[in-house]
Nucleic acid binder design. Structure first.
Length: 120
RNA sequence: AGAGUCGGCCAGACAGUCGCUGUGCCCGCGAGGGCAGGGAGGAAAGUCCGGGCUCCACAGGGCAAGGCGCCAGGUAACGCCUGGGAGGCGCAAGCCUACGGAAAGUGCCACAGAAAACAUACCGCCCAAGCACCAAUUGGUGCCGGCAAGGGUGAAAAGGUGCGGUAAGAGCGCACCGCGCCGAUGGUAACAUCGGUGGCAGGGUAAACCCCGCCUGGAGCAAGACCAAAUAGGGGAACCAGCGUUUCGCGAUGCGUGGCCCGCGCAGUUCCCGGGUAGGUCGCUCGAGGUACAUGGCGACAUGUACCCCAGAUGAAUGGCUGUCCACGACAGAACCCGGCUUAUCGGCCGACUCUCCCG
């Protein structure tokens, strides 16, 4: 497995509904107008990401895809700074209208905040 | 040059870099890695029609319900497309049409108006015939009556215009137009043209019920097929005998019923079987497929030959960043697959045609 690169393979994602439920059941959270970020410790030695972008909050498919890509990209670039956490990002109503740069800034804040909370 | 009509096409480009996801090859026990190549749309959308595919149902016929509705063709099929007809709009190129039946029945049509239909007579028009009176030559007045041309109401008053006709009128007669019926010709047909004939049916509404003709079984890829852990539960079998051996040793599930054995019941252990959840695999992309050419056809399209393989995800990929350029980038994201329709859309390109103006 590579250590240097910024890869984002399947092992870094939440793949089952049971894994999502575990995070929803009890977790640290961080939110602003664009996102709510939930996180719960795992024992894998690396963080994992799951997305929950509802049609209610982001109505058009194109916008939903855009939001998901921005989140994944941001996670990919930050994941080596994150502790071993299962993270679920929920989009909120504000996310639909924001630019990519705004969303990235918001996510960067969430990563550091959620990392600090779970470490403590 | 301007205005416009129709048809087709494109949907920021290029480079670098970091990623994601299938495919092929290679490396690796494996996890994974490397290289090559592919990776959203004209609407992928709405889910409104039509088909393929899958499962269920199904002898045949009828009813109901729903849909469709000028004619011919195309197609797997269609509510789509092409060509044609009719009606309407536009100077034109062209465009639009839910375009069967109101001479089967029912319903509805405000208000106005005398009357909205076997007609009727409000204002009117007429006194020719008959009768009465006056005058007395043929005139006048009235009664009995006649009329539906004119006015008025209305969306509509039972064909229209003109001439003749008459007391006044009237398809009463005639001509042309309109309508119905019959025939001929052209056309596959819708229909058109012409001729004859009848003085002449008939208000609208069928995306109101209805009538006529044609079409339609139901559900959908979360269809459906296969593999299948753990836990709980279902069915079956075994455990009431033996085994090793010179002596002898090992072993016999428990409880209830019963004096005891067999048997029966409950529990237990082991094994097997089927259903099936999580999860996984298939369905899943080679197809009514594209591109080019040829042939047939006005065309939609069909046939033939050659070449090409062109997304296949599944907590769900198809992207991020940087640089350069320009016309500064709209609507918008595949989820089994096709054919349509409809709706959204910054802008640009190409072709054909029409009208107006100017120059020659």
């Amino acid at each position: 497995m590579d250590v240097q690169g910024e890869r984002f393979g399947r092992h870094l994602r939440l793949l089952r509904s049971a894994e999502y439920k575990r995070v929803f059941a009890g977790s640290a959270r961080s939110s602003d107008k664009s996102f709510t970020v939930l996180a719960r410790e795992n024992d894998l030695g690396h963080p994992r990401l799951g997305l929950a972008i509802s049609r209610r909050q982001v109505p058009t498919a194109v916008a939903r895809n855009r939001v998901k890509r921005v989140i994944r990209e941001s996670f990919r670039l930050h994941r080596r700074q994150l502790p071993q956490l299962d993270i679920v990002v929920l989009a909120r109503r504000g996310a639909a209208g924001k630019s990519g740069a705004e969303l990235r800034r918001s996510l960067a804040r969430h990563w550091s905040r959620i990392g600090g909370r779970c470490a403590g």
